[in-house]
């Protein structure tokens, strides 16, 4: 299978242009992550310095790994069904583009802003805590391993969410159903990161390695599943 980078880039660029000019998408991408800032910020600013030591045994920051899961799910869920309903998909698949190029282009277009938003929101949180929180609280919250986890787990989590979203989108008949279903199917990963964040699953190096391996495997399976359901015949006939 040879992939044309030019075709992938064409789809990605087109999608990014469309996102930028769609106020609803920009708003959804801005609001959802900000909601995830509220809870940890309240915790940071209401926590007395004396209680900060206890926080060292929690991993509240990992809770923000939900951002790279939820943000791309909505974008990816719209990717195929949205175009199909607008009638813009048929001209695209009538060109020499391969299924893999179409998928990669759309996945990248969801991946790039989602990663930027996830890292951006996280960086904003870290900056607020470092600047405004009590130093004891700040050091309890912001620790090296969690920063590293955030950095490393964000891309594969986003990728999983994107493949799920695209696979759902290719089968769905309307974007709202696709969005809801994609969010629902992405929730298990949010549940796991939340369980780790609140100490139910121990946040240890072996846990991180196992979860990382599982996530990479899921990403591979997700890519295969999305490739299997994005079929020209289905895309054309489902639209009529």
């Amino acid at each position: 299978m040879t992939v044309s980078r030019r075709r992938v880039r064409a789809i990605t660029r087109k999608e990014l242009h469309e996102y930028r000019r769609n106020a609803a998408v920009v708003l959804a991408m801005a609001i959802l992550p900000l909601v995830f800032l509220i809870q940890p910020l309240i915790q940071v600013f209401t926590l007395p310095p004396s209680a900060a030591t206890a926080l060292r045994h929690e991993h509240a920051l990992l809770y923000m790994l939900a951002v790279p899961v939820l943000v791309p799910a909505v974008l990816a869920a719209y990717a195929v069904v949205g175009e199909r309903l607008q009638g813009t998909l048929e001209p695209v698949i009538a060109t020499p583009i391969s299924r893999e190029e179409l998928l990669l282009g759309k996945a990248l277009a969801a991946f790039i802003p989602s990663i930027a938003v996830a890292y951006g929101v996280f960086a904003l949180f870290v900056a607020i805590v470092e600047i405004f929180a009590q130093p004891v609280v700040a050091s309890a919250f912001i620790r090296g391993p969690e920063l590293l986890a955030q950095l490393l787990f964000t891309p594969p989590l986003a990728a999983w969410s994107i493949w799920v979203g695209i696979a759902v989108s290719a089968r769905a008949s309307d974007p709202r159903t696709a969005g809801q279903l994609a969010l629902l199917l992405s929730l298990p990963t949010v549940a796991i990161t939340t369980l780790v964040a609140f100490g139910v699953v121990p946040a240890t190096l072996p846990t991180a390695l196992v979860l990382g391996a599982v996530l990479l495997l899921l990403d591979l399976l997700g890519w295969r599943a999305a490739s299997a359901v994005v079929d020209r015949e289905r895309l054309v006939t489902d639209a009529t």
Partner: peptide, 27 residues
Amino acid sequence: AIMPESPGLYLRLSVLENLRCFADLYE
């Protein structure tokens, strides 16, 4: 080339951006 019944243009993009995308898809 196929021109479907519905033009299927990206309405938020300019004419040039639409055509540029397809020029790239045809390489």
